[in-house]
Nucleic acid binder design. Structure first.
Lengths: 127, 127
DNA sequence: TTTTGATGTATCGACAAACAATATATCGGA
DNA sequence: TCCGATATATTGTTTGTCGATACATCAAAA
């Protein structure tokens, strides 16, 4: 079993989210920003200064591939998950769930967790 | 409600975890390491080089208070949550849950979530 | 007795990532 | 014409994590 949560997870759940969104369909950067924002109820705003270096890192790591679209006046660089990226995504998702349940358990122990289902709009707790 | 997930959450779920463990009872550093490890089924190992600066930051921010215990040969610095720290913990916990359900929802959409395991509170099966 | 390993706190330097700011360019509409 | 949205990219700043290192106490094994 997992011996220790990878420290990347502490910082790097962004990678997981980007890979997830790209797994839905290929996207170019600007579109990815919108998609991530939409998928998170506008909670996650990925700044350009974070996103582009991140995409370049993912590509360098072979997790995504890119292709320029110059057919229109606007240059767009489409990113797509590679097979390697998909495998990585699955692995990262597993690790994240372990990590998340660790924290959830911790919060449970000090009674800070509202029961709430994942997909429900979460009926706002008092205050 | 929440306008945007604090970027600290991306990197800094460690703060949340440390505050949570201290909320259970006051601890000194070495004890905190053990507690965090135990509470996470040995999945989270907090290195000294990470922990002590972190504790100092938390103290500087007024979230914990410290007190030296010199009664034994071993010098121990006990840390305790302040009222401010407790408030922060509640807030951070809420933010974290929002963040976590964002990711869970994302993973759900691409069918990467396993139907829950052992200790997790098992969210509703269907949306 | 000496040495080893666990306990206990702390700092330093290397490294990586997030971000704001900035630059550049296209395009549609007011 | 000008402005705001679209679109990609880099730079410099800042912050947190981590391994390495340092120092000290103590109990038990060698």
């Amino acid at each position: 079993m997992a011996d220790q949560i990878e420290s990347e997870l502490l910082r790097g759940s962004l990678d997981l989210m980007v890979l997830s969104v790209l797994a839905q369909s290929p996207k170019y950067g600007y579109l990815l920003q919108k998609a991530l924002s939409d998928n998170s109820q506008q909670q996650i705003k990925l700044s350009a200064g974070t996103m582009y270096p991140l995409l370049h890192r993912l590509e360098e790591a072979g997790l995504v591939s890119s292709r320029w679209d110059e057919t229109t006046g606007r240059r767009r660089k489409w990113y797509e998950l590679t097979a390697k990226g998909r495998k990585k995504l699955v692995k990262q998702a597993e690790l994240w769930q372990q990590y998340a349940s660790c924290i959830t358990r911790l919060l449970n122990e000090i009674q800070l967790v509202v029961p709430a289902s994942a997909s429900a709009p979460a009926p706002a707790p008092q205050s």
